[in-house]
Design a protein around this nucleic acid. Structure first.
Length: 279
DNA sequence: AGTGTATCCTGCAGGC
DNA sequence: TGCCTGCAGGATACAC
């Protein structure tokens, strides 16, 4: 998806548009993106005022004036688009849910592949759901001691470890691989075998990569768009992701690709030493 | 606990 | 041009 920086960019774009405005009756064109009955989403959001827009991991949360939350996970191809009343842009090709806004504009949840999910949660349900996610990597709970402890009791490859939302929330395949390159760690290295001196570097690398990507408005490869339809520009800064065969910016060795955990992993064989036994 | 596999879907790029 | 294969920012459920 859309990972943390993309969700953050969307939240920042949405906040000024939605805060304090009320939602109209949503048109649910693709019920399969709604968890539960789409009628419940319609009944629960129509006429409600949005009091806040936040991010949790890679999820976008609209908080409504009755304390409920609309939580949106964009899956692989989800977009949250704002169409102003006077928009002359072409109609979105794959709208899934459309909320009319007080302003006369529209909030469109758009999703080509429909792997995304929209759920309506009351305050207690939201709290339970949020507790199931790990700490925010840019937040204060993502401490060195948390990482040391959590990595230490896992044999998962580092890349898989970073993708697990229960361990840390918001990292996906792009930023996991980018952070591992920056930290000089092989994606397949078992988490508990990370040199203790590298944990601090990994933490710093994760935070640096996420902050850089947010500053660029995220990474648009195909589907991700900002609220206004614009692209994120971080693709031009990627160190390894999608760059198989290209020269590493650090050492000029050709970047390699391997597959594990069902997904491509890109890495520099020179900057990111293989786990031992695999040579 | 961890891995491999399959599934949900559509679009696009590349090979022939 | 057309067909076919493989691939994609995610999440989950299953068997082993």
């Amino acid at each position: 998806m859309p990972e943390l920086p993309e969700a953050e960019t969307i939240v920042r774009g949405l906040h000024p548009i939605l805060s304090g405005t009320s939602l109209g009756h949503p048109d649910v064109l693709r019920a399969d993106v709604v968890e539960g009955r789409s009628g419940a989403l319609a009944a629960g959001t129509e006429g409600r005022t949005v009091t806040g827009v936040e991010r949790r991991g890679k999820n976008i949360r609209m908080i409504l004036d009755d304390g409920t939350s609309v939580v949106i996970n964009l899956g692989m191809s989800g977009r949250l688009l704002h169409r102003p009343a006077d928009s002359t842009e072409p109609e979105p090709s794959h709208p899934a849910v459309i909320w009319p806004l007080e302003s006369g504009g529209l909030l469109v949840y758009h999703d080509i592949r429909r792997f995304g999910r929209i759920r309506l949660l009351d305050a207690a349900e939201y709290a339970t759901w949020s507790r199931g996610l790990g700490p925010e990597p840019l937040g204060s709970a993502f401490t060195l001691s948390y990482l040391v402890e959590a990595l230490g009791r896992s044999k998962s490859p580092l890349r898989s470890w970073l993708l697990d939302q229960r361990r840390v929330a918001g990292i996906g395949n792009i930023y996991a691989l980018e952070a591992l390159h920056l930290a000089g760690l092989h994606p397949a290295l078992p988490a508990s075998l990370i040199p203790s001196a590298s944990v601090r570097l990994l933490r710093r690398s994760i935070r640096a990569v996420l902050r850089e990507a947010i500053a660029s408005g995220g990474t648009t490869l195909r589907d991700y768009r900002r609220v206004d339809g614009g692209r994120g520009s971080y693709a031009t800064h990627l160190r390894v992701y999608g760059r198989e065969g290209e020269a590493c910016d650090v050492c000029t060795a050709p970047i390699e690709r391997m597959v594990f955990g069902q997904r491509s992993a890109f890495y520099c064989p020179q900057c990111q030493r293989r786990p031992e036994g695999d040579l």
